[in-house]
Design a protein around this nucleic acid. Structure first.
Length: 462
RNA sequence: GUCCCGUUCGUCUAGAGGCCUAGGACACCAGCCUUUCACGUUGGUAACACGGGUUCGAAUCCCGUACGGGACGCCA
């Protein structure tokens, strides 16, 4: 049977970084085995689901290039089927009606906790005649779970995990209002969709036991499970706002490339020898569940940033220029000649950037009119003497061919004539032209700016 | 509280009983390169949680302890 995986987020917020990794693993696993990767939106909790959240998930997956192979399945559209299966279980005696009220259940839970017992349903309606039902209570359907023995999950990541059935209670599969609970809907959908491998966060590990019981009650063959460890913040605690970005759109806004994020997420909790920088193709070729670790891993923004720099250096110059223009163009699109300059200097610019935002900042000087803002360090470099020197340099530059080699030669000659080191000339010049003390090589900057612009900027300084 | 899972440099990991004097990557430190900043490059600091077994031999297998995480809803 060919592999079929699914990513099944509930649309209650943004696409979280942990969810993104789950999607990635599902995608990679299915691709590696030449299978199919599906998306199911678990939107059965109407009160919490929003259209915006669904869109956010879709946008995030789109950006990460993790689009499903087939149309999206919305769980909410399958409620009739969920109810049908629950009724079948009821009819076959594998489930029963429970007339407990929410208040009654809450009481049961509190009492158990107070006595130090685990909070579980006591099975009071398991063998009770529905004829004894109190009036006005819409019954829920509970699975008649086995009381003895144990339930075993052969997890592809966690290994064989077993739990005594006495630890599990009779879970509700269909609510009093006829809607399915999560555990039930997941099982029915995964079965109907022909899912062969359920890859998800290990916060679902204990759910696997409950779900296994439903598979057994329906006599369905369960899928293989793979519970991957969670991602924690740098301090080992659950990832939260104070740790920084957690939704994929935030990473996008901070100037990360999707391939860098995917690369980082892949290496978080998975390893293959010394492989660090992996393209999508390589990831598909190498990825398998046996390389997934069992321990939670911590988010390391520094390493993500490093990987982003690596991917920026490898990225297409045209694409990067477009991203930079987008960022520089917040107050109107950059002029055509500015775009040309950005594109021309991109090979040198991308060598120095760690994020697209860095890249845009480092290209900003290309867009400014002659009088550009000076950083403090640049300001300090432009002493009266330096300014004077630049005015003397101007005629020399004016007479130079504006190609990097010629400019380089010209600068060296100018410096030599004055008995100065090249840096003594280049640094003030850089400050004057870029407003900064760091930039691509000065000859490249000069060539890209062009004679006219260079002279204009030097004049503006006089 | 109960059940389940985990623990190799600060972080991500390699490691399937001898290849381990524990490897790589990020970060950090020092040097080189250099017109700046980066890139690159050379070197360095840094880990098998602890305690018992098993074995000729254990980071690797077993048990316990500690610490961390997860799950215990008519949420998903």
């Amino acid at each position: 049977m060919s592999v079929r995986t699914r990513f099944a987020p509930s649309p209650t917020g943004m696409l979280h970084i942990g969810s993104a990794r789950t999607a990635l693993f599902n995608y990679l696993f299915s691709r590696h085995h030449r299978g199919t990767y599906l998306l199911r939106i678990e939107d059965t909790d109407r009160a919490r689901n929003t259209e915006a959240a669904i869109q956010a998930i879709l946008d995030g997956l789109e950006w990460l290039d993790l689009r499903p192979d087939k149309p999206i399945v919305f769980q909410s559209t399958r409620e009739a089927r969920h109810a049908e299966v629950a009724q079948a279980l009821l009819a076959s005696g594998r489930a029963y009606l429970c007339f407990c009220t929410p208040a009654e259940l809450a009481e049961m839970r509190e009492a158990a906790l107070a006595e130090g017992r685990p909070p579980r349903y006591d099975g009071r309606w398991r063998n009770r005649d529905p004829a004894e039902a109190p009036p006005g209570v819409a019954p829920a359907i509970r699975l008649k779970a086995p009381r003895e023995g144990e339930t075993i999950v052969h997890d592809l990541v966690q290994g064989t995990v077993r739990v005594a059935n006495a630890e599990l209670d009779d879970m509700i599969i269909l609510r009093g209002d006829g809607t399915p609970t999560y555990q039930h809907a997941v099982v029915v959908d995964d079965h109907d969709m022909g899912i062969t491998h359920v890859i998800r966060g290990d916060d679902h590990l204990t759910n696997a036991f409950r779900q296994m019981q439903i598979y057994q009650a329906m006599e369905w063959e369960p899928p293989r499970f793979a519970h991957i460890p969670l991602i924690h913040g740098p301090d080992g605690a659950k990832l939260s706002k104070r740790h920084g970005a957690q939704s994929v759109v935030e990473f996008r806004e901070q100037g990360f490339l999707p391939e860098a994020l995917c690369n980082y997420l892949l290496r978080l909790g998975w390893g293959h020898g010394d492989a660090e920088v992996l393209s999508r193709e390589e990831a598909i070729r190498l990825f398998d569940l046996d390389g997934v670790g069992r321990a939670a891993s911590r988010m390391d923004y520094a390493k993500l940033t490093h990987l982003n720099a690596v991917w920026i250096r490898q990225a297409d110059d045209g694409r990067l220029s477009t991203e930079v223009a987008k960022r520089l163009g917040r107050n109107g699109a950059p002029a055509p000649e500015v775009l040309t300059r950005i594109r021309a200097l991109m090979p040198a610019l991308k060598e120095r950037a760690r994020t697209l935002n860095d890249l845009a900042a480092s290209a900003a000087f290309l867009a400014h009119a002659p009088a550009l803002p000076l950083e403090a360090k640049a300001q300090a470099l432009l002493t009266p003497a330096a300014r004077e020197m630049l005015q003397e340099l101007a005629p020399a530059l004016a007479a130079t061919d504006f190609t990097p080699p010629a400019l380089d030669a010209s600068l060296r000659e100018f410096a030599a004539l004055r008995g100065e080191k090249l840096g003594t000339v280049a640094q003030p010049l850089r400050a004057a032209l870029t407003g900064s003390t760091s930039s691509p090589p000065i000859d490249a900057v000069l060539a890209v700016l062009g004679r006219e612009e260079v002279l204009a900027r030097l004049r503006a300084l006089a």
